[in-house]
């Protein structure tokens, strides 16, 4: 156990040495990393796809006389094999078939779902909140005027500010309208303000999480490996 833990610690230190400068230790860790991952992926593709999605189903289909299934699997395998035409200079272009099938399918697949999740759902969320209450709400403004306080102000303006932000950001990214257009000129500064506030806040939000990653690694070295080493050497 100590052997493997020590390997893990040394490799971690080798990676961290990159912060000082590029050095043989980092190069070793980097190349080891690449080799391990590529080898691992080959094994995974073999076991999860070649065996589980091709060989096993074909065997099963033959056994159960499901010929339609068998034909489908064989066609897919043959199309995949077309990629290997790359190894020949002359027949290289044949590999465009699997590429265009893959690209075509995923493009078509993305159209309706992207429209739904990226656009319609988001716009709906800008008209009403999760509870179905409208974001532009005159009553909340009335409440604030009746009894002014920080919380009633927040309730009254947050919705309208959110709606305004979404609209100016959308306008900011119009491509076919000239910059002199009054609408674009009006939206420009507020849109940038919203974007920068948003990017800054997200940056700050993630910052703390990233710092804790490093603390986690140090924790492994000092609180897991070091006691194990002491224990092994000491007794």
């Amino acid at each position: 156990m100590l052997f493997w833990y020590t390997v893990a610690v040394l490799l971690s230190l080798a990676i961290f040495s990159f912060l000082w400068k590029d050095n043989p230790l980092y190069k070793f860790a980097e190349h080891l990393f690449v080799g391990t991952m590529v080898g691992y992926t080959i094994v995974m593709v073999f076991s999860q796809i070649i065996m589980r999605k091709i060989v096993d189903p074909i065997t099963l289909a033959v056994h159960n006389h499901q010929y339609l299934n068998l034909i489908s699997l064989i066609i897919a395998t043959l199309i995949g094999l077309l990629y290997l035409s790359r190894f020949s200079q002359k027949a290289q272009w044949v590999s465009r078939y699997p590429i265009s099938i893959t690209v075509g399918f995923w493009s078509g697949y993305a159209i309706v779902t992207s429209f739904k999740t990226n656009i319609l759902t988001q716009v709906r969320g800008t008209v009403v909140d999760d509870m179905g209450a409208p974001l532009l709400n005159g009553e909340l403004l009335g409440d604030f005027i009746k009894s002014p306080s920080w919380s009633s102000l927040d309730l009254a303006v947050s919705g309208p500010l959110l709606v305004f932000g979404v609209i100016v950001v959308l306008i900011y990214f119009f491509f076919s309208i000239k910059n002199e257009n009054p609408m674009v000129r009006f939206a420009n500064k507020p849109a940038l303000l919203y974007l920068m506030l948003g990017f800054g806040a997200s940056f700050g939000y993630t910052f703390m999480g990233r710092i804790s990653l490093f603390i986690g690694r140090m924790n492994f070295i000092f609180n897991e490996w070091w006691p194990l080493l002491k224990q092994t050497i000491g007794g």
Binding site: K27, A29, F33, V34
Partner: peptide
């Protein structure tokens, strides 16, 4: 360059 997220980053950084 490589096939995984961080091994790729390690290789490209290198």
């Amino acid at each position: 360059a490589s096939v995984g997220q961080f091994d790729y980053a390690a290789a490209v950084n290198g």
